[in-house]
Simulated assay, not measured.
Amino acid sequence: MAGSSPCASCKLLRRRCAKDCIFAPYFPPDDPHKFAIVHKIFGASNVSKMLQEIPVHQRADAVGSLVYEANARMRDPVYGSVGAISYLQNQVSQLQMELAVAQAEILCIQMQQEPNLPIQLDQDEKSLLLASCNNFNSIPHQYFNFASSSNVIQDPLKRESLWT
């Protein structure tokens, strides 16, 4: 790095940035926050060891993952990125449940409008299903807003991006 400014890691660690600095390609001098947060969570020595053990063509992805996890750990020291993943998985589950309820409502409406639809049910089963539809329609929709069963209380994605 002779003649140019040191990389963000060497600048933060106050050392001379060598030509073969392992951090230089991934922590440019114009983005010091990126290394600062990774250093705070993982430590420069550990990051250096990790990068040395990873093939060169995978290091940029590894640094991206380290930055993501470091940001997630700063926001949620207990769960880190797992908290964000759990939140999103719970949200997907809730949306799948809402979709199933909507599809059941559509089927009920179709069966009420056209009771002779070619559905693979005998007459007793169709009658039971139609009766269930009548009961189903009387249930207030707020009961279908399923709460998350996760231990993660906060929404980690609403505060700010985990990629910064």
Rank of each mutant, 00 (worst) to 15 (best):
I37H: 07
H39V: 07
I106W: 04
S45K: 14
M50S: 09
K34D: 00
V101N: 03
L66H: 04
L66A: 06
E69W: 09
A62F: 09
Q96A: 05
E53V: 11
K40Y: 13
D76C: 03
V82E: 13
D61S: 14
Q91E: 04
L66Y: 07
V67Y: 11
V67D: 01
S45I: 11
A70F: 01
I54T: 05
A44W: 11
L66N: 02
F35Q: 03
Y87W: 11
V101Y: 04
K40H: 11
L95W: 04
P77S: 10
K34A: 01
K49Q: 15
Y79G: 12
M97I: 09
H39S: 15
N46K: 15
L66G: 07
E69G: 09
S93R: 08
L107A: 15
Q91I: 00
V101G: 02
M50T: 11
L66T: 05
A104H: 07
Q96T: 02
Q52W: 11
V101S: 03
R59V: 05
L88Y: 01
I106R: 09
A44G: 13
A60S: 15
Q58H: 12
E105Q: 10
S81R: 10
R75F: 07
A84M: 04
I41P: 01
C108K: 02
E105D: 10
Q103K: 15
F42S: 02
E105S: 12
G80V: 01
V82D: 10
I85W: 03
Q94I: 05
Q94C: 02
K49T: 15
K40I: 07
L99H: 06
P55D: 14
L95K: 09
M111Q: 05
V63D: 01
Q96Y: 04
I106D: 06
